[in-house]
Design a protein around this nucleic acid. Sequence first.
DNA 1: CTTGACCTTGACGCCGGTGTCAACGCCTAC
DNA 2: GTAGGCGTTGACACCGGCGTCAAGGTCAAG
Lengths: 126, 126
Amino acid sequence: MRIGELARRAGVSPRALRYYEQQGLIVARRAANGYREYGEADLRLVIEVRALLAVGFTLEDARPFVACLRAGHESGGSCPDSVAVYRRKLAEIDDEIRTLLARRAEVAGQLSAACPGCVLRRREDS
Amino acid sequence: MRIGELARRAGVSPRALRYYEQQGLIVARRAANGYREYGEADLRLVIEVRALLAVGFTLEDARPFVACLRAGHESGGSCPDSVAVYRRKLAEIDDEIRTLLARRAEVAGQLSAACPGCVLRRREDS
DNA sequence: CTTGACCTTGACGCCGGTGTCAACGCCTAC
DNA sequence: GTAGGCGTTGACACCGGCGTCAAGGTCAAG
């Protein structure tokens, strides 16, 4: 199938697919006229990438997953490199959550300091 | 004082101060030779802005705080517009935290699905 | 032959807060 | 005079994942 059909089926834009190829993920073979030709397996790759992007992964993060699928594994996350990325991502997310919680506390503190009584309506702000 | 001294005292770069001015915050008066001239009050403004940026506010968010300080209030957060920004920011932060928690759960779920036993070492992943 | 839907590559725009460089002016000290 | 340490404006670079437009090639249907 060509890029338009794959894009429709995967729910992405052709531009995104070309970008993925430019980044070295999901490289298509070319027809005689220069058009990109994709197979069914590529649809799975795109869906995997989109799922990863949706949960905050970068394209760089998605690389091992694509490689894992292309290596024939049923799940993109079942290879050691993918698992490593999973772990790293979990750590990053935890860091961000901690940062946000600290910020939230800081902002809430500033608010209650600048405008006493403004935050009181809630209970668990101690 | 001129821009270099203010920058040193506030712990920011002259470039940042020019940018704040370009954005309409902390506009300096000009000396005869065109140099920016700042007063002590401006130091407080810069410090306020930096404190807000440090907790995730944008320059746009910082605007009411600067206006509040320039209006003579002791705290930049004690004006109604500032309080509104505080509240909005708290809501935004809470949203981000919720999003991150959902992502964390999703990633942890995918990891445990792709690699059963990888996540088991911890207890509170239910 | 022409239309029109599809494809190609290349390149700029976006967002925010700067860093960095260019090319120049001001002012003091030697 | 001149060195050099300050200031000025203007403009490009960055990051990521595309959107969007430009200018053109391909191919099937009418």
